[in-house]
C-alpha cells in the first residue's frame, strides 16, 4: 500500500523488505495454483476432455473423489457403490499424504472470501471435536434429507460448477448467488469460514493429523515470542507454542513472515503432533 521512498541501509530493514517480498510471493503462488486448477476445469469443459472437478477427478484410470462427498452420497442413497468408495479411499489416501494442501493451495474459498483470522476463534482445545461434529453432522444431514446437502453448498463444488458453466457455456448466476450467501454467512458469524466453519476443511483436518510430510516447526533457539506467525496464520496457530499440524494448510505464510527465520520446513516428519502436545 504505502511505499514511500525508503532507503534500505540497515540489515533489519533489508530483512523486512525481503520478508514482504517472500510473503507476497507465496500468497501469489497459492492464488495462481488455485486459479490455474479452476481454469483447467473450465478448459476441459470447453474442450470436452474428461478430467472432473474437485469433487471427483479422473487422472487416466485413477479416480479420486472427495471423501466427504462419498460419505454423503453413500449415506444419502443408502447404497454402497464400490467403485465410488474406492475413489473416495484414494482421495483419503492423498489427504493423508498431503495434509491440508487442498485447503491452502486448491480450494478457491481460501483466497476468494477467507480474509485471514477473524475476531471470534473457536477454542483450540475443542477444535477436533467441533470439526468432527461438522463433518459428521453433514453426513447425518445427507442421510436425513436423502440428498448430499453439503455438496450443494460446498464452496469448492460451487466454484467448480461455475468453472464448468464458464467453460461449457452455462449460467454463472447460481454460483454467484451461493458465494454471496456463504460470504454473508461468514461476515454475520464473524468467523473465518476456512478455520471454523467449513465441514470439508474439518474432515480433511481430522484425517490429515496422520500426515507425515510437509511440516513446519519452530527452531527454539531462534524463536522469540513475537506472534508474527500467529497473526499471519489463517488458522491462528503460533508455530513457536503449540503446533497442531493437522490444521496446517502448508501455505508457507509463517515461514515467509518470521523475522528471525525460525520456522523450519520439514518435508518428512513421522512424529504425529497435535494441539495437546507442545514442545
Amino acid at each position: 500500500m504505502e511505499t514511500p521512498v525508503e532507503t534500505i541501509t540497515t540489515r533489519a530493514q533489508r530483512v523486512v523488505a525481503s520478508k514482504r517480498l517472500t510473503k507476497k510471493f507465496w500468497a501469489r503462488a497459492r492464488v495462481i495454483t488455485s486459479v490455474t486448477a479452476l481454469a483447467l476445469i473450465a478448459l476441459t469443459a470447453a474442450l470436452k476432455v474428461e478430467l472432473g472437478t474437485f469433487s471427483s477427478l479422473a487422472l487416466g484410470p485413477i479416480q479420486f473423489a472427495c471423501p466427504l462427498g462419498v460419505a454423503q452420497v453413500i449415506a444419502a442413497s443408502q447404497q454402497f457403490i464400490p467403485a465410488f468408495a474406492l475413489a473416495g479411499l484414494i482421495g483419503l489416501l492423498s489427504i493423508i499424504l498431503l495434509g491440508r494442501v487442498f485447503c491452502g493451495w486448491l480450494c478457491p474459498g481460501r483466497w476468494m472470501f477467507n480474509r485471514g483470522p477473524w475476531q471470534e476463534k473457536m477454542p483450540f482445545k475443542h477444535r477436533g471435536w467441533i470439526q468432527g461434529a461438522l463433518a459428521g453432522g453433514v453426513v447425518g444431514l445427507a442421510a436425513v434429507c436423502h440428498t448430499p446437502v453439503f455438496c450443494i453448498v460446498c464452496p469448492a463444488g460451487i466454484v467448480c460448477r461455475g468453472a464448468i458453466a464458464a467453460g461449457a457455456g452455462g449460467s454463472l448466476l447460481p454460483t454467484l448467488g451461493w458465494l454471496g450467501g456463504i460470504i454473508s454467512f461468514e461476515w454475520l458469524s464473524r468467523r473465518s469460514w476456512c478455520r471454523d466453519l467449513c465441514p470439508l476443511g474439518g474432515a480433511i483436518s481430522l484425517v490429515s493429523r496422520l500426515n507425515p510430510f510437509l511440516k513446519f516447526k519452530a527452531n527454539p533457539e531462534k524463536c522469540r515470542p513475537c506472534k508474527a506467525c500467529e497473526n499471519v496464520c489463517p488458522e491462528g496457530m503460533n508455530i513457536g507454542r503449540a503446533v497442531d499440524t493437522s490444521v496446517c494448510m502448508k501455505c508457507f505464510a509463517c515461514q515467509a513472515v518470521c523475522p528471525r527465520d525460525a520456522v523450519e520446513f520439514q518435508p518428512v516428519a513421522f512424529k504425529i503432533t497435535t494441539a495437546k502436545s507442545s514442545h
Partner: peptide, 17 residues
C-alpha cells in the same frame, strides 16, 4: 438426487451442450 454428487462431470463432457 440422493446418488448424484453434483460434480458436474456429465455437464463438462456433454459434446452437444
Amino acid at each position: 438426487r440422493a446418488q448424484c454428487q453434483r460434480c458436474g462431470k456429465c455437464v463438462a463432457i456433454c459434446p452437444h451442450h
